[in-house]
Computed example of a mutant assay.
Amino acid sequence: MRIFGAGDVWEHLSYEACIAAMRDAMVTFSEGRAPSVPRTFLDLAGGNMFGAMAGSLGSGDVFGAKLISLFPGNTRHGKPSHLGLVALFDPLDGSLSSLIDAAALTAIRTASASAAATDALARPDARTLAVLGYGEQAETHIRAILAVRPIENIRVWGRDPERCARFADRIAAACAVPCTPAADIARAVAAADIVCTTTAAVEPILYGRWIAPRAHINVVGFAGSDAAEIDADLVLRARYIADSRASVLAEAGEFRSLLRNGTITDAHIVAEIGEVYSGRAAGRTCGDDITLYRSLGHIVQDLAAARTLVDLASGAALRSIRL
């Protein structure tokens, strides 16, 4: 069995490879060829949670599980909010083949899934990126989206102006793209081609009236059945595309609230992203469309990222133990 620590994940799992893996995995999922069980969460004290999810990438392919703790307050101390492990099993004999740091894997695969969706849904000439948040997911989303669009200008917003300014300076230096802190969210997203929400907000902070026609939105932040980073107007204006229909109906607060009051039906989910990748459903239908990818995360994404990591690191000298 091989053990991949956080450093191993960051060293070997490239955004480009992970983006391709996300496309393939979500096609497999939407075609019903990647069985999984609904993820479960155990409520802990102080708003923290412990989650478990299990699945397979299909007959004869890897299967496994993810065990993860969700401690949102960690971000205030510079620690990841998601901590845990992903376990991969060999499909030939059922043996445990790999244990992988889930914090690093989740950071890269979540951003890569958004980048894959952005590549399919955003306009080819998209050049301006707005990111809400300045944590780890904000940085990984910037790096992943730079792999699919030639971004020329980045704007970031966060609740603490000083931290936001430091983050913008670091991103500009690391990515060689101008990155500007915005005084408020409306200014951050004004006329932006691509917007990513990566905050822990449980009430709307992004409003549809601020979003220009032709924009693409990745809604990535806190998932909760009664929580919402975006308002009802943005849900109604956008072509709403899910990673998983079932996940949206169970966990996407901004969608569920409109469903409960009868404003929309399940049909407002125009497609799963895997259906867009395979050509079974349309993503952007005209230039003025606002497209929205709702990222809730799925075990097939973790397994696909994990398998890609193992393949990329196959020649590396990593820790191993015999069970």
Rank of each mutant, 00 (worst) to 15 (best):
V195E: 04
A252C: 12
I273E: 02
T28C: 12
V220S: 09
Q137W: 09
N218D: 12
G287E: 06
A191S: 14
E203A: 15
G224A: 08
G78D: 05
A116D: 06
T118C: 13
L92I: 11
C175W: 10
V27S: 11
R239A: 07
A250Y: 00
P178F: 11
L83E: 11
I151S: 01
S247R: 11
N153H: 15
K79G: 05
A183H: 11
A147G: 08
R307S: 15
R170C: 05
F50P: 00
L121V: 03
A111H: 04
I142D: 01
C175T: 09
M22W: 06
V235R: 12
L129Q: 03
A201T: 13
V189S: 07
R307L: 13
I145F: 07
R109K: 14
L292K: 05
L296S: 06
T28R: 13
E251L: 07
G221L: 05
C179G: 04
S114T: 13
Y240K: 10
P35V: 02
G73Q: 09
P124D: 13
L309Y: 06
T197S: 12
S114P: 11
A227P: 00
P181L: 00
L234I: 11
G224N: 13
D289I: 02
A174F: 07
S81D: 12
G135P: 12
T199V: 13
S97W: 02
A6Y: 09
E272R: 09
L323E: 08
I264F: 09
A6K: 09
N261H: 11
I142Y: 04
L42Q: 08
A165M: 05
S14F: 09
E11N: 11
V310K: 00
R187Q: 15
A165L: 05
L129N: 04
V148H: 07
T263L: 11
A45W: 12
A144S: 08
S320Q: 14
L318F: 08
D302N: 07
Y15V: 02
L258Q: 06
A317E: 14
I154E: 03
H268T: 04
E136G: 10
A126Y: 05
D226C: 05
V219R: 14
L96H: 10
A126I: 08
L42Y: 05
C175K: 04
A305Q: 04
A201V: 14
T40K: 06
D302A: 03
L296E: 09
M1E: 13
T128S: 13
V189P: 07
I273M: 03
V177Q: 09
A20Q: 08
A192K: 14
E254Q: 14
F89N: 02
A212W: 11
V37P: 00
A20F: 11
